[in-house]
């Protein structure tokens, strides 16, 4: 595994780029689409913003922004307050995206995404059960997780494109 030598390999303003990307995903997550009589919701999509969090040297700011974004999603989705903040932090704590030594390849990012999604699915089921006092509908959760799984390549490509445009040409690929 290649270890990062110095902070110079970090992109400038990584936290804010990550925050902007996560904010956009949070907004998208509270929209849904009705196709062929079935409503497809995207509540797990913001988790991609946490999984693909930029490599940054400012871990404290990353933690703060991710917590606030989790709470913002809780407010927007009118769900139990703190639910998504806890899930975001748990995923961030386990996968530590800011500690990566180099950018993810699609394959490794997708593997990571499946693991993060499974973790979030389990956590949201039990935390939701605790918050509501009744068991959440597991099929609805699984459908939403599947929608997030299918959309991963698209979101990954958009993020990759954004990263390519915003990164200094000399630092691309680092």
């Amino acid at each position: 595994m290649v270890m990062r030598g110095s902070s110079q390999t970090y992109g400038k303003g990584g936290v804010w780029k990550g925050a902007a990307f996560l904010f956009l995903l949070v907004l998208i997550s509270v929209l849904n689409i009705n196709l062929a009589g079935r409503t497809i919701a995207f509540i797990f999509i913001p988790l991609m913003g946490v999984c693909l969090w930029p490599r940054t040297d400012n871990a404290i700011m990353s933690i703060l922004v991710i917590t606030l974004m989790g709470l913002f999603l809780d407010l927007l989705s009118a769900g139990p307050l703190g639910l998504w903040a806890l899930i975001f932090l748990a995923v961030f704590g386990v996968f530590r995206p800011h500690m990566r030594s180099k950018p993810h390849s699609f394959k490794s990012a997708f593997t990571l995404w499946i693991m993060a999604l499974f973790m979030a699915l389990t956590a949201s089921f039990f935390l939701g059960w605790f918050a509501l006092g009744s068991r959440p509908e597991i099929t609805a959760l699984v459908y939403q997780a599947l929608a997030a799984l299918v959309l991963f390549p698209l979101i990954y490509a958009i993020r990759h494109l954004g990263r390519y445009i915003l990164t200094d040409p000399d630092l691309r690929g680092m």
């Binding site: 509270v30 929209l31 849904n32 409503t39 919701a41 509540i43 927007l76 989705s77 009118a78 769900g79 139990p80 639910l83 949201s124 089921f125 939701g128 918050a131 509501l132 959440p136 509908e137 597991i138 609805a140 959760l141 939403q144």
Partner: peptide, 14 residues
Amino acid sequence: AVSEIEGPFVRSAL
């Protein structure tokens, strides 16, 4: 209806 949430935790719309 700008946002409709029909999830396992809540069913609401904005």
